[in-house]
Design a protein around this nucleic acid. Structure first.
Length: 590
RNA sequence: GUUCCCGUAGCUCAGCAGGAUAGAGCACCGGAUUCCUAAUCCGGGGGCCGUGGGUUCGAAUCCCGCCGGGAACACCA
């Protein structure tokens, strides 16, 4: 239930009526007509730009057209006043009862409040995390995980048919590197080489992924296979240890994601794409469209790599689809590039019925966006669209001081470490407390601080405070039915204070906000909105401190108390509904 | 050199797919506190929205140029 959607249709109906009566010409384009809350509340409850947008096509002055539309809107049920302002805005005031209806609806809907059908069941694939299976996840991955998960939840709430997906990069050179690192740890575990020798190899960069996490993996391997890989030839242990290592790393990654409360619906293997022939199939598809050719790429301008040499390669005509240069599908040794298997993967998504795809990636993948979008357009004949959300880095701070991290030395801060220290709900909220393409500061001290400056606390505190009021109510007026259904039956017309009414209206804007956030793929808006709602609630609470008449519980006025409690329950409902999108659990008591 | 992101109050950031006088928090200044949780509260000052053009009835928002900051730039993933 979205009051603005409702009035949007009222406005369009009035315009249709004006067309029917000959006041307006037929065939007007009404797509630009918006119905929204005015920024300044003194302008009314609902505002539309219809007259300004349609004036030219109608051959009328905006304010004259506004007069006609306004006349029609005056007749709409619940409209108490219509004003024409500024260059031709039509401002409506509606009976408080309409807003109260939305509040009642919220109470009956619970966390389902704000659910929408704008997605119309369209299939959307959200791919996120997709960390290489070569080690534990670090804080950077956590951001992508939280953004992707919240975005997927948001789209599901807005009525899309969403799949949460993880792409396992298990086919490239890096998993061979993993196999080598695991083998070295394994040799140490078997006593075949000394720890000193291992350290020397690591220092000499003969092996990478030197983190301690492989020590245990090597032990597990030894327990399973004994010493059979110590003297086995490389062509045997590489695939065996690679497979084992990937499986162990994925197990670890899934455990970490689980700690964060992130659960993907689908895990797709790059290796599987290659082995099942999907990559060849994708190549043939592009070939059949005439989009492949063998050519030599220009060296990058300005900065030619030292080892650059002209090489004929199989290239995809990405430039036909908006990219800057054509992109190679095969390496000079004839093996597939990562891009090739990713094309196959996205082609596979399209075949599975996804016409909307979203990839959540680290900002360092920025150069990859255009080519992948080009590939999706090419594969789907422009039927599918790919949106890429790039996440800027997370700066970990300890009381304002940057936490030193060196991935090379294997001393990066893991996702697990952060989650175990501050809790998953804090991580999930904070990761959404900034737009995805802005750098984010994550200060251990600040994110757990119990103060107004900490948005997680601020929002949770609002929810907990409301629960506290309910407990007081029960104590003061035992036996009162405080179920959502009972509260929905309260006489909401008793909410007479301007701030109370403003809060009701803010609650009523929630469905509209969810829809807007879903449409632009911006889950952070949910976090910001919750902070705003919590702020309005806290302000009302404080007003009651100065003016006892405005407290929520008025001992000798149960009806008023119940109405106010309904309002608070509405606030709690919005918070619960929003936290649900973020994957955060509301707290009952603090 | 090319591409992408960013530039809004002293600081950290919002800005609702172009709307009416640009918002919040911190900091600063001035007040308040026997009260449902002081885990503070109320009020105030403060901004040619980087810059120059363009589109429009109307631009922080869209387009182009420039300036400044970050990132990525043949076969890595």
């Amino acid at each position: 239930m979205n009051l603005f959607t409702l009035f949007h249709s009222h406005v369009l109906a009035v315009i249709d009526g004006l067309v029917a009566s000959g006041t307006l010409p037929a065939g007007l384009k009404t797509a630009a007509v918006t119905v929204e809350p005015p920024r300044d509340p003194s302008h009314g409850d609902i505002s539309t730009n219809a007259a300004m947008v349609l004036a030219k096509a109608a051959g009328m002055k905006p304010r004259d057209l506004a007069d006609h539309i306004a006349a029609g809107l005056k007749a709409v049920d619940g409209v108490t006043a219509v004003e024409i302002a500024g260059p031709g805005f039509i401002n409506l005031r509606v009976a408080f009862g309409l807003w109260a209806d939305v509040l009642r609806h919220a109470l009956r809907s619970g966390t389902g409040f704000g659910d929408s059908d704008i997605g119309q069941g369209v299939k959307v694939n959200v791919e996120y995390v997709s960390a290489n299976p070569t080690g534990p996840m670090h804080v950077g991955h956590a951001r992508g995980a939280c953004v992707g998960d919240a975005l997927a939840n948001l789209l599901a709430k807005a009525g899309f048919d969403v799949a949460k997906e993880y792409y396992i990069n298990d086919a490239g050179a890096q998993v061979d590197v993993l196999a080598r690192a695991l083998r070295a740890r394994y040799l140490v575990a078997c006593g075949a080489i000394t720890q000193d020798e291992f350290d020397r190899q690591l220092a000499a960069k003969e092996i990478q992924y030197g983190g301690e996490y492989l020590v245990e993996t090597a032990e597990v391997l030894k327990a399973r296979d004994g010493e059979r890989w110590v003297n086995a030839p490389e062509e045997e242990w590489i695939p065996a240890l690679r497979e084992f290592g990937i499986a162990e790393m994925m197990k670890m990654i899934r455990e970490d994601l689980d700690l964060l409360g992130v659960r993907h619906d689908v895990f797709t293997s790059e290796l599987g794409m290659v082995q099942s022939g999907e990559v060849v199939r994708a190549k043939e598809l592009l070939d059949s469209k005439g989009l492949l050719y063998v050519g030599v790429l220009e060296p990058p301008k300005g900065k030619t790599p030292d080892d650059w040499e002209p090489r004929p390669q199989t290239l995809f005509k990405a430039t036909d689809f908006g990219d800057d240069v054509d992109r190679p599908l095969m390496k000079s040794d004839g093996s597939w590039t990562y891009f090739a298997s990713d094309i196959a993967y996205h082609g596979d998504k399209y075949r599975r019925g996804f016409t909307q795809m979203i990839d959540v990636l680290g900002a360092d993948h920025g150069g990859y966006v255009k080519r992948m979008q080009a590939a999706v357009r090419a594969l789907s004949d422009h039927q599918a669209e790919l949106d890429v959300k790039l996440c800027q880095l997370v700066k970990l701070l300890e009381n304002g001081e940057p936490v030193k991290m060196s991935k090379r030395a294997g001393t990066f801060v893991t996702l697990r470490e952060v989650v175990e220290r501050v809790g998953k709900d804090v991580v999930r909220f904070i990761m959404l407390s900034r737009k995805n393409d802005m750098a984010l500061e994550f200060d251990y001290a600040k994110v757990t601080e119990q103060s107004k400056d900490n948005p997680v606390f601020y929002v949770q505190y609002a929810y907990a405070r409301i629960q506290s009021v309910k407990r007081h109510f029960v104590a003061a007026m035992p036996g009162t039915d405080l179920s959502a259904a009972a509260l929905a039956g309260a006489d909401l017309s008793l909410l007479a204070d301007s701030d109370e009414q403003a809060l009701v209206k803010l609650i009523a804007c929630w469905p509209r906000l969810v829809e807007a956030a879903a449409e632009v793929h911006e889950p952070h808006r949910i976090a910001f909105a919750l902070t705003e709602v919590a702020g309005a609630f806290h302000a009302l609470w404080n007003k009651g401190r100065e003016n006892a008449d405005l407290r929520f519980l008025i001992a000798d006025n149960p009806a008023l108390s119940l109405a106010r409690l309904a309002l608070l329950e509405g606030v709690a409902t919005v918070i619960a509904s929003g936290l649900d999108v973020l994957g955060v659990v509301p707290v009952e008591e603090m």
